[in-house]
């Protein structure tokens, strides 16, 4: 066994293996696929559409706004004490003298 025999064996292997090489033109092309930037843009568009479609729903569920002059604090009832009407009105002294 020498180098020539080795060369001959490798030549035979090369002949066997390259007998069915796939066509160059089938492999020399960029396959059609979605690129990362395309996918990112697509995701952003979906997010914007979802956000826009949520706006009417959020508006519908919002509580009606009241004017600040009509607003009453929920603890206002604590200020109503017994006998409050005596303090908020002036007694009629003329009627009591008759």
């Amino acid at each position: 066994m020498n180098d020539d025999r080795l060369h001959a064996a490798f030549r035979e292997l090369r002949r066997d293996e390259t007998a069915h090489v796939p066509p160059f033109n089938r492999l020399w092309r960029v396959p059609v696929r979605s690129r990362p930037l395309t996918r990112l843009a697509f995701a952003l568009v979906l997010i914007v559409i979802a956000a826009v479609s949520m706006v009417p729903i959020l508006r519908r569920h919002r509580a009606p706004q009241t004017s600040i002059t009509e607003w009453r604090a929920p603890t206002d009832f604590l200020l109503k004490t017994p006998g409050q009407e005596l303090l908020s009105s002036v007694p009629d002294l003329k009627g009591s003298t008759q």
């Binding site: 390259t18 090489v21 020399w28 092309r29």
Partner: peptide
């Protein structure tokens, strides 16, 4: 191309499908 395919075969344990996929990735 033929030599490249032969080398791809050697790098892919003589698996023709893998060699073809690898070679296409290289070309891309």
């Amino acid at each position: 191309h033929a030599a490249s395919y032969g080398w791809a075969l050697a790098c892919c344990r003589r698996d023709r499908d893998d060699a073809e996929e690898v070679l296409q990735n290289v070309y891309v």
